[in-house]
Design a protein around this nucleic acid. Sequence first.
DNA 1: ACCTGAACACCGTTCAAGT
DNA 2: ACCTGAACACCGTTCAAGT
Lengths: 244, 244
Amino acid sequence: MSANVSSTPRALQPREARAATREVLEPGSRLGLSRKLILDTALKLLDRDGLDALTMRRLAEELEVGTMTLYGYFRRKDELLDALVDAVAGRIAVEPGQGFWKARLRELMIGVRKSHAEHPAIVELRLRRPLVSAGALRVTEQAMTILCDAGFSRREAARAYRTLLLYTFGFSAFGPSDHGQRDSQQTVEALAALPRDRFPVLSESVVEAAEAMADQSVFELGLDCLIDGLEQRLTAGARGHGAP
Amino acid sequence: MSANVSSTPRALQPREARAATREVLEPGSRLGLSRKLILDTALKLLDRDGLDALTMRRLAEELEVGTMTLYGYFRRKDELLDALVDAVAGRIAVEPGQGFWKARLRELMIGVRKSHAEHPAIVELRLRRPLVSAGALRVTEQAMTILCDAGFSRREAARAYRTLLLYTFGFSAFGPSDHGQRDSQQTVEALAALPRDRFPVLSESVVEAAEAMADQSVFELGLDCLIDGLEQRLTAGARGHGAP
DNA sequence: ACCTGAACACCGTTCAAGT
DNA sequence: ACCTGAACACCGTTCAAGT
C-alpha cells in the first residue's frame, strides 16, 4: 500500500497545487454522492471493520455505487486517506482553556489521545504519511501557543511538543487496544511461560507487567512525566543562563 | 494483511504449543534452505525495500525457490513476520551496564531506538501484533531489573517502562525518518502556506517547527524528560507515604 | 458530464500433483 | 519427504465504453 504512496508525489504545479489543497474535483453528482458523504462512509467503515476493510471496492459497495465512481471524487486512494486523516484531526478539541500551562497542555494531549481512541485506524494511517495539513496542525498551533506563553522559546516549544505528540501517537499505536481483555490473558500466559533463570524479575512480575500493558491510564503517567520534565528544563534554562 | 492475523489464532493444544514456540517444521531441506536463511533474506529485503516489498513471492524469488516452498518452513506469512520481529529484538544490546539507574535506563532505551533506526520496517510490523516472545522481552527484563533496583515497586516499574517503550516506539514509527531531507523542505513549504490569521504562532515558527520534525535528537529530549519525571515520582513516593 | 465493467498486475494461501 | 505450478479470492488502478 505505502509503496504506491511513495511512488507518486508528482510535484504539483503552483496553480494546480492551490486547487488540490481544497476541492480537487467534486463532480456534479447524478447520484447523491459528495466528497463529504464518501469520507463519512469511509470513516464509518474504518471504525467498524478496521483499516484493512477500507478498500475502494467495499466502500463503493457500501455507497451502492460502482467502484470507479469514487475515482471521480478522489484521484487515488491515498488522496481519500489523507482527506480522512485531515477531517478527523480537524475535530480534536483545541479550546483555549484556562489555568496553568501544564494543565492546558495536559488537556490538549488528552484530547488528541481521545481522538485516537475513538478512531484507532486513523493512527495507523498516519504512520507513513507525515501529513502537514491544516486540520492536523490546529493542535500544533494550540500547543505552540501554550508553550510559548509559558516561556519556552519557539525552538524549545517545537521540540517539546514533538515529544508529547510522538509519545501520544506511540501510546495509541502500540499501547493497549480498547477491548484488550483477551490480550491481557494471553499476555499473562506468555509471561508465565518464560524461563525463570533468564527472566528472574519479569517472572516475579507477571501480573504487574500484564496489567501495565493493558492499562489505559499509563498514558497519563507518561504524559505527566514528560510535562514535568519539560517544566524542569524551562526553569533550569531561565535560571541557568537566562532567556535572550 | 492484519485482517488475516486476527482471524486465525486457533488456540494451540498444550503439547503442540510447546513445539510451536521453538522449531515449527524445519524440513530436511533438499535445497540449501533453512528458517535462518529465510529470515536473514527477509530482513535484507525489508531493510532494502521496505515492508511492502516483503511478499512471499518476492522472498521466494530472492531465494531462487518456488513460492510455496516457504510454506514448508513457516505455516503462514504472519509466522515468518513474528519470527523476524523476535530475531531483531533479540539482538538489542542489554549489557548490564553500570552507574546510576537513570544512566543505565537511558542507555537501554537508546539501544532500542538504535535497533528501530536500523530496521524501520520492523517497527511497522510490531504495530498490530503485541508480540510477547522471549527475544522481545529481554529488554523488558533488563528495564524491570534497573527500575526495581532503583527502588520502584514491581507495579510502578512495569508502568514506568511502559511509558518509555511506547515513547520510543512512537518516535521510531512517527518521528523523522533517517533520510528525511526532502521531508523537511516539504514541511517548510506546507507550514509557510498556512493562513497567518488562524496559525499566528506556527506561522512565526516555520523553521523551528520543521527542524523539530526532522531532528533525531529530539528523542533524547523526551527520553530524559520521561526519566526525570519518573525520578520525581520515585522520590516523592519515598518521602510522601513511604514504600511498603 | 457523469458513471462504470472489464482487464491488468499484483497479493496470500489452498490444493493437488510432481519427484 | 520435499518441493511446486495452477487456481482462487482478493487488491488498486487504467482504459475504453456506456448513458
